[in-house]
Nucleic acid binder design. Structure first.
Lengths: 197, 197, 197, 197
DNA sequence: CATGAATGAGTTTTCATTCAT
DNA sequence: AATGAATGAAAACTCATTCAT
């Protein structure tokens, strides 16, 4: 009658590995992040790792999926707002704030570096699409309300907002003088100016 | 018995390996680009590879340095021009055009993925600095002439122009609907609008 | 609080694991038969497996011992017969019939493949000896009665009868055109001819 | 202008590994024969092993193919003979003599133990077929000449001769009292008696 | 210079087995 | 008894790099 499966325990353990993986991947890149290093960081044995993830690659995918899910949750939290441009700038500003966690840009770089793995490319594109899908309806509402430029189709505008946040992330990672906190305001203003056209 | 090195022959061989390396790195990422694969692509034996580059990493650094050198050459070609904003937009537009060569974004991603290697980080930052240094004097001249916004220091503006081209490159690599040719015009217009403030 | 072991339940469980082990070993060989696979087949958890067998190897030994015991039981069932050659041919024919169970040759192959484990070698030789010991008295009685050749010592004749059944088993396992049912008759005739000398 | 590929050297090295593999596989079985052990025996580094064989399994297949090729060569050496039964008994006797090399039965057992690997099963059946194909024409000639029984089709007789040698091999491997040299004569006599019917 | 055979450190992954519940 | 999460030793295999020819 023993029931050993405690889903809570399982989920906690899983997150613990994901967290360690995120750190080590950000620090050392995909190949530098050996499973041994991740296990050491997570404080588990190598066997345990493969109890939770069949493959190192699967861990990466799980982290990416977590991010995609988070993006979708953000979308839900915006229900009820009525200022399209404000919403869009909040989203862009929020993503820029993520760059303040030094692990995010490192992880993004690490994962982009193995984009030639089809599964990674797919997950990365899903993440990308999620961001654009969150933006799209608000851009359309803004256009309908005359608050957003109409000379560029909504979908392209979405891509350009993602371009701005992507470039921002990369800049923070590359250039020590360019900090997420210090440049965020200019990002939001630039995005607004872009939206107005 | 003296075997004098024919520098012409040597340089040609070197470029041949660099070209193969660029392709294979773009396609398969840093670790996926085995020296064996690069040698196969270059049509040489593995021993020959190490005659020209002491290390796989050194090949990557050589490619990056080539890019940095190219950037400096671009700067020299602008001597004599007198329209700062025009020069800046030509530079940004030209970098965007690079993204049309599908190997460039792939190579950039691959290299960013191993940025945890100190030598690579250094070379990448040198490249980055080169771009900003090319922009900087023209931004300053533009500000002096009143054609470029003055509310943001010239160095930061340089960073932001690089941000735009970096984000552009990434976008082209990620999103099939976002093409270098199709979006270049909007990039230039957005850069101009940013410069005007 | 004493939990008394129900020996009936215990024995049933044990046989259930042995049965699963026999199947999986036959299908996948010794190393291919992971304890996980055997547990899955038996419908038990991995922990349970080790309640019944201290080691995967011990399971194999248990299966072999079961076979050896069966051979001894066969011997007992022959008490009272008076036709030595008939008995010998019944034994050989019966063993050949075992080959019709497709698990038998597979299991035998799997176990022979790990004969380098001393315990397995010992168990296999015990099984072998059991077969020869069952045969031996009947060969001797047949020789005494003048029905079995005397130019070869009884023990060697026993070895040769085992050779025939062993070769038969192997053939059935290797050659699809060679079926236990179809060739059994020729086996018995060949054994008889061998016994007559 | 360096030409490093010396096919002679390559073939010698390859055989050296095959020889070591044969020994270690015979001694320790398929899984017990780690690539490390084989390399140690062959006096090479692990990298060299995989220079010659892409996989441990491929080494096994190479050994089996060598055996199959040898069987075909034997067939060629019999051209011109005119005594079918003599030829058949020479073949059977020759195969029995192989059992005197203690590595042969051990290797056969080891390989049979991983017959669940499709490639191994195929190679093993090719080997088996080769033996039967060598026997078949001589059985047919013997039947035509009235020297071989006609109540059993030639192909089945071939299977039975292989059955005898297979059982013989197994016996030598299992039973210390059963030696290849001591029992070979009885094998040939038994085979002859079987052929006469 | 050019070659490719040889190397072995380092990686991911598997799996029998243990043990707390 | 029964369970399955946790473990870590061991295995196959990869790949940058060296070096004799």
């Amino acid at each position: 009658m023993a029931r050993t499966v405690d889903p809570r325990r399982h989920a906690r353990r899983r997150l613990q590995i994901i967290d360690a993986g995120l750190s080590v991947l950000a620090e050392r890149g995909y190949e530098g992040a050996t499973t041994a290093a991740i296990c050491r960081r997570a404080g588990i044995g190598s066997g345990t790792f493969f109890h939770y993830f069949a493959t190192k690659r699967e861990l990466v995918l799980a982290i990416l999926e977590l991010g995609t899910a988070e993006t979708h949750e953000q979308a839900a939290a915006l229900d009820g707002r009525d200022d399209p441009v404000g919403v869009l700038l909040d989203l862009v500003g929020g993503w820029a704030a993520d760059a303040a966690d030094p692990r995010i840009p490192g992880f993004v770089r690490a994962v982009a570096g193995v984009m030639h793995l089809p599964a990674v490319a797919t997950a990365l594109q899903a993440d990308d699409r999620a961001q654009r899908e969150v933006l799209l309806p608000w851009i359309e509402r803004g256009q309908a309300a005359g608050e957003v430029r109409r000379d560029v189709p909504a979908a392209r505008i979405a891509s350009w907002l993602v371009l701005l946040t992507g470039g921002f992330l990369e800049r923070v990672a590359t250039d020590d003088a360019f900090t997420a906190v210090g440049e965020r305001d200019l990002l939001v203003r630039t995005a607004e100016s872009f939206l107005r056209g």
